[in-house]
Amino acid sequence: MGRLLKKLLMDHPAYDIRRDKDGFVLIGKPDHIDEFSDLVREAADHAGEDFVVFTTSDGGQGYSQMFVMPLDAVDAR
């Protein structure tokens, strides 16, 4: 597991984490949406080797949610 993936899956004041069957849903907190959106952009820019992300827009220029799927979980099937 890469450093960015580990960072994303740690507790953070900008989002809550919910475990899902194939990964994790990160849900941005409304009072930290700019910080969360920056993390989503960073994750999207670095996705591909350790994980993939699926983002949900907040209807503007930010993000409200991000699904993170670690690729090692996909390989283990």
Rank of each mutant, 00 (worst) to 15 (best):
residue 1 M to Y: 05
residue 1 M to V: 07
residue 3 R to Q: 13
residue 3 R to F: 01
residue 3 R to N: 14
residue 5 L to K: 05
residue 6 K to C: 00
residue 7 K to G: 01
residue 7 K to D: 13
residue 8 L to Y: 10
residue 8 L to K: 06
residue 9 L to G: 06
residue 9 L to N: 07
residue 10 M to W: 08
residue 10 M to R: 15
residue 10 M to I: 00
residue 11 D to W: 03
residue 11 D to H: 13
residue 12 H to D: 15
residue 13 P to M: 04
residue 14 A to D: 13
residue 14 A to W: 06
residue 15 Y to E: 02
residue 15 Y to T: 03
residue 16 D to Q: 04
residue 17 I to S: 01
residue 18 R to V: 14
residue 18 R to D: 03
residue 18 R to C: 01
residue 19 R to G: 00
residue 19 R to K: 15
residue 19 R to S: 06
residue 19 R to E: 15
residue 19 R to Q: 13
residue 20 D to F: 02
residue 20 D to S: 07
residue 20 D to W: 05
residue 20 D to M: 13
residue 20 D to I: 08
residue 20 D to G: 12
residue 21 K to R: 13
residue 21 K to M: 04
residue 22 D to T: 09
residue 23 G to Y: 04
residue 23 G to P: 07
residue 24 F to V: 01
residue 24 F to T: 06
residue 24 F to H: 14
residue 25 V to E: 12
residue 25 V to T: 11
residue 25 V to S: 09
residue 25 V to W: 11
residue 26 L to S: 09
residue 27 I to W: 02
residue 27 I to G: 06
residue 27 I to C: 06
residue 27 I to E: 14
residue 28 G to M: 05
residue 29 K to G: 06
residue 29 K to T: 02
residue 31 D to T: 10
residue 32 H to G: 02
residue 33 I to P: 01
residue 34 D to N: 11
residue 34 D to H: 06
residue 34 D to E: 15
residue 34 D to R: 11
residue 36 F to P: 09
residue 36 F to W: 08
residue 36 F to A: 08
residue 36 F to G: 02
residue 37 S to Y: 02
residue 37 S to A: 06
residue 37 S to L: 03
residue 40 V to T: 10
residue 40 V to L: 06
residue 40 V to I: 04
residue 40 V to E: 12
residue 41 R to P: 00
residue 42 E to D: 14
residue 43 A to L: 05
residue 43 A to D: 08
residue 43 A to W: 05
residue 44 A to R: 14
residue 44 A to S: 15
residue 45 D to P: 00
residue 46 H to C: 00
residue 46 H to G: 00
residue 46 H to Q: 14
residue 48 G to D: 02
residue 49 E to K: 12
residue 49 E to H: 12
residue 49 E to A: 09
residue 50 D to S: 14
residue 50 D to A: 07
residue 51 F to Y: 15
residue 52 V to M: 12
residue 52 V to I: 15
residue 53 V to G: 08
residue 54 F to K: 15
residue 55 T to P: 00
residue 55 T to S: 13
residue 57 S to D: 11
residue 57 S to M: 11
residue 57 S to L: 09
residue 57 S to P: 01
residue 57 S to F: 11
residue 58 D to W: 07
residue 58 D to H: 09
residue 59 G to T: 04
residue 60 G to I: 00
residue 60 G to C: 01
residue 60 G to A: 14
residue 60 G to H: 09
residue 60 G to W: 08
residue 63 Y to I: 01
residue 63 Y to T: 08
residue 63 Y to C: 06
residue 64 S to C: 03
residue 65 Q to F: 10
residue 66 M to W: 08
residue 66 M to A: 11
residue 66 M to C: 13
residue 66 M to P: 05
residue 66 M to L: 10
residue 66 M to F: 02
residue 66 M to Q: 04
residue 67 F to L: 15
residue 67 F to H: 14
residue 68 V to L: 06
residue 69 M to W: 05
residue 70 P to F: 04
residue 70 P to Q: 01
residue 71 L to R: 12
residue 71 L to K: 13
residue 72 D to L: 05
residue 72 D to R: 03
residue 72 D to H: 10
residue 73 A to S: 10
residue 73 A to H: 10
residue 74 V to M: 07
residue 75 D to K: 11
residue 76 A to R: 03
residue 76 A to S: 09
residue 77 R to V: 02
